Simulated assay, not measured.
Amino acid sequence: MPARRNGPRGLGAISGVAGHVEGLPAWVSQSRDMDEEEWTMPIATLRGVTLDCADPRALARFYQEMTGMELGYNADGFVALTGGSGCDLGFQRVDGYRVPRWPGQVVPQQFHLDLRVEDLDAAENLALGLGAVRPDHQPGGDRWRVLLDPAGHPFCLVTG
C-alpha cells in the first residue's frame, strides 16, 4: 500500500466508494474509513488547476475578470492566471475540445470550480455580462448558483 494513501482528508477518508472501480488501482477504490493514527503528513500542495478549452486566452480573460487574478503565463496554447494563493488557474488548448453537457453526462463535466462571492445576484450578473450562461437546472436554491463559463465548463457561485 503506498505511503501517500492517507492524509488529513486523504483517500482513506473517502467512504461511499464500494468495491473496485474499473480503471483505478484497488487501493484507491476501496471503501474504508481511516483512523487518525493512520494519517500521514501530506507530501504535496495544490499548485494549480488547468481547464481544457478551445481558446485559452478567451477563457483566461473570463476568469481574470471574475476573480481578479493576474496573468502569470501566456504562450501559444496555454495561459495561466495567478492570484497570490499559490494555486494557479491554467487554460490549455485542446484540439477537438467538446463542451461538457451539464447536468447530463453525455460529455461529462469531470469537475467544476466553486467561486466564493459576497453577493450571488451581483456575481451572477457580472458573470453573465462576461459571457457565462445560466442553465435551467439550479439545484442550489438560494445557497449557490450554477453557471457555464464561455467554454461550457460548469462552475458555482457560492456564499460563505
Rank of each mutant, 00 (worst) to 15 (best):
N74H: 07
L115A: 09
E118Q: 15
Y73G: 00
V146Q: 10
V99G: 04
R101S: 14
T45R: 14
L113R: 03
A54Y: 00
Q138P: 06
Y63A: 04
G7D: 12
R134T: 12
G10P: 05
D136I: 14
R5K: 13
L120T: 10
L46Y: 13
W39A: 08
L46S: 13
A3W: 15
P100I: 11
R93I: 04
A58T: 11
L71S: 03
A122Y: 12
T67V: 00
A80L: 02
P2H: 10
Q109I: 04
E38G: 00
A80D: 01
D33A: 05
Q109F: 13
T40V: 14
E36G: 13
D121H: 15
V99I: 14
C156M: 05
C87E: 12
E70D: 05
G16Y: 08
P103H: 07
G104D: 13
R98A: 07
G140S: 07
E118M: 12
R5M: 08
G7S: 07
A151P: 01
F62H: 02
T82N: 09
G140V: 12
A132Q: 04
D136K: 13
G10D: 12
M66K: 03
P100E: 05
R9Y: 10
G77K: 01
R9V: 11
H20M: 11
G152M: 02
G84V: 01
D121L: 15
R101N: 06
P108M: 08
N125I: 06
Y63W: 00
A26G: 12
G10S: 08
G141T: 09
P42W: 11
L24F: 13
E38Y: 04
M41Y: 14
V146E: 06
P2A: 08
C87A: 14
H153D: 05
C53A: 06
G19W: 11
E65S: 05
E38H: 08
G86A: 04
Q110H: 09
A132G: 09
G10Y: 08
G16I: 02
G16W: 06
M34P: 03
D95R: 05
Q30A: 14
V17L: 15
I43E: 15
G84N: 06
M66G: 01
G12A: 01
A151G: 08
E38R: 10
V49L: 00
V17P: 07
V117C: 10
F111M: 11
S31F: 08
A80W: 03
T82S: 06
W27V: 12
S15V: 14
L157R: 03
Y73A: 08
T82R: 04
S85Y: 03
